[in-house]
Structure formats: C-alpha cells, structure tokens
Nucleic acid binder design. Structure first.
Lengths: 166, 166
DNA sequence: GAAAACTTTCAACAATTACTGAAAGTTTAA
DNA sequence: TTAAACTTTCAGTAATTGTTGAAAGTTTTC
C-alpha cells in the first residue's frame, strides 16, 4: 500500500468513526486530513483534497477551531490562513472529552437534577425518582472522572489504571 | 411538576442525548419509556405512548433487545410479548460500552493496524506511520480499559478511581 | 389445518441534516 | 480610499437517515 492510498483510507476510517459518534462526517474528514498532513493547509487545499465547497470547508474548519483540535498556523509571506491539527493524541482526546462534556453531558445532568423534584408521593413517583437518581448519580461520577482525566498526564493515567487493574 | 410531565421530559432528554451520541432518537425514546415504566409494556403500548408506527416500534424494540438493554418479559395469561428495560444503570453502561466497543472501536483498531504497514521509506511516510501508531496505541489502551471496566463492579470501580484521583 | 393473534419486513415517503455556490463582508496593502 | 485577496454567510438543494403501513410471515389455539 502506498502513502496516498493509506492517507485516503485513514480519512475514511476517521470519518466513519466520527459519524458513528455523532460528529459530522466532513468535520471528521477535515480533521483527519490535517492530522496526516505534514504541513499546514489552507482552506483551498482542504477544498481540493476533499472535493468539498468553500462554504463547507470554511464551516468545518471553524468548528474544529472551536473544539481546539485545529490551530491557525501563520505561514510567513502568505496572506492566506493556514491550519494544522493538534497531533498529541492525548491532547486530542482530552479536548474532545472536554467539549462533549460541556455541550452534552452537563445539560443532561442539570435536567436530570430538575426531574428529581417530582411532587408526588405515590409508589410510582418514588420509583421514577429512584431511576432518575440512579442515572444522575452515575452520570455525575462519570463526569467527575472525565474532569480528573483532563487534568492528568497520559502516562500516569494509563500507568496507574493498569497497575490497578492488574 | 407532576409525574407524567416529568416522564415525558425524561424521555425527551434521553432521546436528545442519544441522538447526540449517534443513537437513533426513537430507539432512545423507547428505551427511556421502558426505563420509567413500572410494568412491562407491549409493542402496542409503546406505539401509543410515543405515537409511532408498529413497524418503527418493532424495529427499535428489537434493536434494544440486541443491545441487551431490554428484555422480553412474559406476562402470565397474555399471548402478546411484553418488554422491560434493564434498570441497573451500571449494567446499562457496561452493555452500551460493550456494544459500541465491538461494533465501532474494534473495527477501527483493526483498520489502523492495517494502515501502519505503509511500504514507503520517506520522511513523510514515517510521519504518517507515527500518527497512526499514536492513535492506535491510545485507542487500544482505551479499549483495554473498557474491557476491564466491564468485568469490574461499580462500587469498586468508582471507589478505587476516586481514591486514586484524590 | 385453518383462522386468529401476533410479529416482522420493506418499498415508498417524510424528516432531518449537510452541502453548495454565489453574494456579502472583511482585511490588507499601496 | 480603493481594489484585490481572502473569509463568512445563508437560501436553496442534495444526501442521508428514519418512519409508515400494508403485506407477508409466524405461532398458537381449537
């Protein structure tokens, strides 16, 4: 297998994974493309290499900047903007975790907390509250674990995890 | 807030969370409905309570059975099938993790492994291989952690995790 | 063994989500 | 200050994904 073939397949794999986890297919493709590009790319490069429109490229690059997965990379002597991806995969994982936690988990935790306050005293209501409570408790433990992970260092994190799980 | 209102909102919240994580909205709704239902429900109950068609109800219930998140619950004297959800939230988490790991993570790991075998010796190829290697390594550590989690007990798991992260 | 009770399938349709491309907006340099 | 270089927006369109409902399939009962 040659390099450009392998790169193309990597982009596809990454895109499929992304879309299975609720991340826009094209955003994942752009991310993958930048991950495997030696040098920073411009919007036009991305458009060409993925055969997508200017608007689409722009939107997805912007979104990747929001997620902090991609940086602007000024190229001396060029007026155009260039972009490069964060390549430290532990950083990437932490940033994705941070973003999804903030956008998706925290609102749910808040909502569940609200739902615990059902004002009925029937056995049925008690049962409902128990279910919601259980989920809330679990989700906040998970939330706190992610929080901690985000402050930790990869080697330490997995190292300790593995010793633990021996 | 009264109970039926709260249940309806719980179903909505669960459905939103599901769709943000790549799970079909209706499947999540059905799951949520069964989670907050005292007694097992029949396909017809689900159809009515969520205003969905027979085909749709059937498909999503079947899928939930595949994920092991829902059981058939024979009701004595009834010919119809009834269903109830697994309510132990730690079990639910493990089963979702198991299913997604199997369906989505493992194929990616396998694919990444294949991509490491680029047959070129340029610096560019070396760089590509490094990126793929890093991701592969990270993903398999994660994979193994999930594996371990699935064998563990909730109290022990979070207990140890928290002591660790003190 | 046939009809009633129930479950599953699937082609047509509907809803949702993503993309395009042209126009508007912004920045830069002379 | 203006025109060139570049970026962003967004209404219309396309692609994808999910749903319906009627027909086919299956199981149970008598």
């Amino acid at each position: 297998m040659n390099l450009s073939e392998a790169k193309a397949q990597f982009i596809q794999t990454w895109a499929r994974l992304g879309s299975e986890w609720g991340i826009n297919r094209t955003m994942a493709q752009v991310h993958a493309l930048l991950l495997v590009s030696e040098n920073p790319l411009s919007t036009e490069d991305v458009m060409e290499q993925l055969s997508i429109s200017r608007g689409n490229a722009n939107m997805n690059i912007r979104e990747l900047l929001n997620w902090n997965l991609v940086y602007k990379a000024p190229v001396p002597g060029e007026r155009k903007e260039f972009f490069r991806a964060e390549k430290d995969i532990w950083e990437v994982a932490k940033r994705i975790a941070r973003e999804r936690k903030k956008r998706e988990i925290e609102p749910v935790l808040h909502e569940l907390d609200r739902l615990r306050k059902v004002e009925e005293d029937t056995p049925e209501a008690k049962n409902f509250i128990k279910t919601v409570n259980d989920i809330h408790g679990f989700a906040s433990k998970l939330d706190r674990s992610v929080e901690t992970m985000m402050k930790a260092d990869e080697t330490w994190f997995f190292g300790t995890l593995f010793k633990l799980f021996k």
